[in-house]
């Protein structure tokens, strides 16, 4: 196992409108290490710097100070390699469906791979595979992206990034605006893709329930700085601090905490309805039959 973090930032700082009277420090002294193959959830209040941070990972922004390292190498060390960085770190921005522009779904998905200069048969293979990855049948390939529903467009946009087969897949609120089934489908699709390819995933979200259910570790941004970067259990053990930051803990965790406050000895590191159901069910049955 390779111990070098796939992505690392060192004291990364970014200031919008540097040198004017209206400077905004969007990132301050951010040092994080993303490990090969992990799924990192990124949370933080609106304006905390999540999108700005992500734009540094594929070199769309260059830090006012500090460095970004991909596989141990400073991404800005050799400017001729910036393009290669963009192929290795695929970023799907907020509301990506507004960026669809080709006449057909297949052409839109092929845009990235074509830019990479891949041969036609490889492009075709990737388009096909990306469609499968996002759960769209081949019938969609020749449709116009503009004739699709919001949820379908979102999937096409994500497929376009997947078709570049990036080592790091970064998604900025991929489920925003989707209906509950759409959300579940997109999350499952991301989990499956990661399982299949072993790629590293960063997922920005405002849903505490989602991040708790899917992430290995959670990066919490607060006012342009890193507040926590830890396991799901350790992050959600800080209920009060999270609430002060405009965040929260998952609803099921809230339920367990309220039971604990009433004096019940229940675990609080539960996040999904299923987990809580299993626990409550076992205690209830155990209690009824006097066991335990």
């Amino acid at each position: 196992m390779n111990d070098t973090p796939i992505l690392r930032t060192e004291n990364l700082t970014y200031i919008y409108q540097k040198g004017t009277s209206s400077e905004v420090a969007a990132l301050q002294d951010v040092s994080v290490e993303i490990r090969q193959g992990e799924l990192v959830g990124v949370i933080g209040h609106t304006g905390s710097g999540k999108s700005t941070l992500i734009e540094h990972f594929n070199a769309l922004k260059k830090g006012t100070a500090g460095r970004v390292l991909l596989d141990g190498n400073d991404i800005w060390a050799d400017k001729s390699k910036i393009r290669a960085v963009r192929f290795r770190v695929g970023v799907c921005f907020q509301y990506p469906e507004y960026q669809l522009f080709e006449e057909t779904v297949a052409k839109d998905i092929a845009f990235g791979p074509r830019n990479m200069g891949l041969p036609q048969d490889e492009i075709d293979r990737r388009v096909k595979e990306a469609l499968t990855n996002v759960g769209l049948s081949e019938d969609y390939a020749e449709k116009s992206p503009f004739d699709l529903s919001g949820g379908e467009k979102r999937r096409v946009a994500i497929a376009g990034i997947m078709a570049m087969e990036p080592q790091v897949l970064v998604l900025d609120e991929p489920c925003a605006g989707l209906d509950p089934r759409g959300r579940a489908t997109v999350l499952q699709m991301i989990a499956d893709y990661r399982q299949k390819t072993g790629c590293t995933v960063l997922l920005v979200t405002h849903s505490m329930e989602e991040v708790a259910a899917i992430a290995d570790r959670i990066l919490v941004m607060n006012q342009s700085r890193v507040a926590f970067f830890d396991t799901v259990d350790n992050v959600f053990a800080h209920a009060e601090e999270l609430q002060t930051m405009g965040l929260d803990i998952p609803q099921m965790t809230q339920l367990m905490l309220s039971l604990r406050e009433k004096g019940y000895d229940v675990p609080v590191n539960l996040y999904t309805v299923q987990q809580v159901y299993d626990t409550i069910f076992a205690r209830w049955k155990g209690g009824v039959h006097g066991a335990q």
Binding site: R260, Y264, D265, R283, W284, G287, Q292
Partner: peptide, 12 residues
């Protein structure tokens, strides 16, 4: 849920 959970066994 208070009514459901065993008081004695489950209480801290």
């Amino acid at each position: 849920l208070e009514a459901l959970l065993p008081r004695s066994a489950g209480r801290v």
